[in-house]
Every structure is written in C-alpha cells, then in structure tokens.
Simulated scan of single mutants.
Amino acid sequence: MEPNVRFWITERQSFIQRFLQWTELLDPTNLVLSIEKIEKSRQLLLTNEDASRGDLEDKRIQEAWKRSLSTVHPDNSRLIPGPFRPAALLPFTAPTLFLSMLPVKSLKSMILPQASFYTYSTAFNIVNGNASYDRRAHESLLLGAGVILFPRLLQVRLSMNSVLSRNFIPVIILAQLSGMNVIASRSLEPMRGIEVMDKEGNVIGYSRKAGTKAVKDTATSRVVLFGTSAFIPEVFAYFFKRTQFFLQNPWSLWTLKLSCTVLVMGLMVPVSFSVFPQIGRIQCSELEKEIQSATEETELFYNRGV
C-alpha cells in the first residue's frame, strides 16, 4: 500500500491532531527537499510497514513521514512539484490575495492580480486533487479559468458607493469564486468517479458519489480559507481608518492590511486543510450499487485531495 494512504487510513485523527500535523507539513523547508532525501525517506517507510507517526523514539521515522506526506501525491506516488506542494500555498497566494482586495478602479487594475491568483489556485487544485485517472490538463485549466472573469467584470460595472459594497461584497465574491474554482477545475472527478478502497488499500471501484463528496469538501475548505483571510483584514482596516494614527500616516493602511493578510492566512491554511480528513471515509451503503455488490466492507476510503 502507498505509505501516505496507509498513514491517513490508520491514523484516525481529530481536528486538533490534524491541525498540528499540518503545521509540520507546511514547513517551508519542505519546498526545497532534494529528491535524494525524499527517496531515502520513502524507502524507509516502504521497508517499515509498521512505522507509526506516533513513534516518538525514532526521529528518522518521524522525519520520513513529514517528508513523504508533504511532497508525494498519495494516489500516484509521484513527486509533487515544489511550487504546488501544500507548503507553497501561503507564499504564492497571500500577496496576490492582498492585491486582489485592493479597490478596483478599472478593469486594467484588476486583471493582473486576479489572473495570477486564480491561475495559481487552479493549477494547485489540479496537481493536489484526486489522481485516480489520467486527465487532460488543458480541460481542467479551461474549466477553472472560466469561473474567474464574469463575476469580477460584474463587480467593476456595479456602482459600489456604500462601505458595505466597497469593502465586503468583494470578499463574498472572492470566497465564492475560490470554491467555484475547486469545483470547476476538479469537475471531472464527480463526472468520472474516483477510486474507493478498503482499509488494506485495495481498490474496489470508481465512485462518482465519492468524487462529488471529495470536491464539495475541498471547495468548502477553500471558501473558509480565502473568505476568512480576506474578511478579517478588511474589518481591521475599517476600524483602523478611524484612528488618529491613520489620519497622520495614511500609507500605514496598506502595511497593516498586508501584514494582517499574511498572519491570518498563515493560521487559516492549516485550519482549512484540517477541516476534513485527507483520506475521506464513506459508508458503502452510500455508494453505487455495483460497488456495494463488489465488497463486504461497510466503510470505504478515498483521497479527498488538498
């Protein structure tokens, strides 16, 4: 069985345990791990099937799990490219998220940050999504890009004179688009189905219902992540504008918003990844009849994707 799948199936973690786990996996040093170190860690896990993440006495096994879980895709055992590993999400999206929330004065001022943010998000969703089958990258990219422009064009055209419209309607739009981006870029999973497996890692079949659940849960986590990361800085900025310090130093507003965005998102990334388990569980009775007839298991597993 793929070690990463074995880990997530056997380690039944609570939300707090998953959160603490992700704070380790999101270590920026995981972005620059050499292939040699990753291969050595993988070999150690493959030759120690009883290795437990809770084994505090063996630091080598702890480090091996950290490297494997943060750099290798659990479906196909392939190395995740550095820019799209989970630890890369914060440094790549925090600056573009901040720029995306700046006041929109024209279509031109909106295109670059919005295009950068959603292009990276789409690629991240595809790379870290379920990989039960080979997909055509251009199909997913087109689907993911399709959700970007229309709502933002609408925002530019709308007259936004009130404080609520200027500050918080863009937050709502961004949160919704982040969820829609996941749904669109991974829309082939509910259409074609994803692998479901028993507790031994044996593939039982392909389920569209499991694919729908995987995409829905991931989309929800993205709404939580980007919605909160955009909303809280706007609240801070709203009250900060009423202080004497701001009146004397107007430039300080952007420094505050950028710092707040990075801090909030730094907390929300592990929170959003922890809301749902990496390897989801679904009752066999909820799946297609052909899968129910192919196994006697009551509970099956699938990779939700990050």
Rank of each mutant, 00 (worst) to 15 (best):
I9Q: 05
I9T: 03
R12E: 12
Q13L: 14
S14E: 03
F15K: 09
F15S: 08
I16P: 02
Q17R: 08
F19M: 03
F19L: 15
F19R: 11
L20G: 06
W22M: 09
T23A: 03
E24S: 11
L26D: 10
D27S: 13
T29Q: 14
N30C: 01
L31W: 03
S34T: 15
E36T: 15
E36F: 15
I38N: 05
K40W: 09
K40R: 13
K40S: 13
K40H: 10
S41H: 05
R42K: 15
L45R: 00
L45V: 02
L46M: 07
L46R: 10
N48Y: 05
N48L: 05
E49N: 14
E49F: 09
D50F: 11
A51R: 03
A51V: 11
G54Q: 12
D55K: 00
D55W: 02
L56D: 10
L56Q: 10
L56I: 14
D58Y: 10
K59I: 10
Q62N: 13
Q62I: 12
Q62H: 08
E63N: 14
E63L: 09
K66F: 00
K66L: 06
R67A: 13
S68V: 15
S68T: 15
T71N: 08
T71A: 06
H73G: 05
D75A: 12
N76H: 12
N76Y: 07
S77R: 13
R78A: 08
L79Q: 09
I80K: 05
F84D: 05
F84A: 02
P86L: 08
L89H: 14
P91Q: 01
T93W: 03
A94F: 07
P95M: 03
P95C: 04
L97S: 00
L97R: 01
P103R: 05
P103V: 03
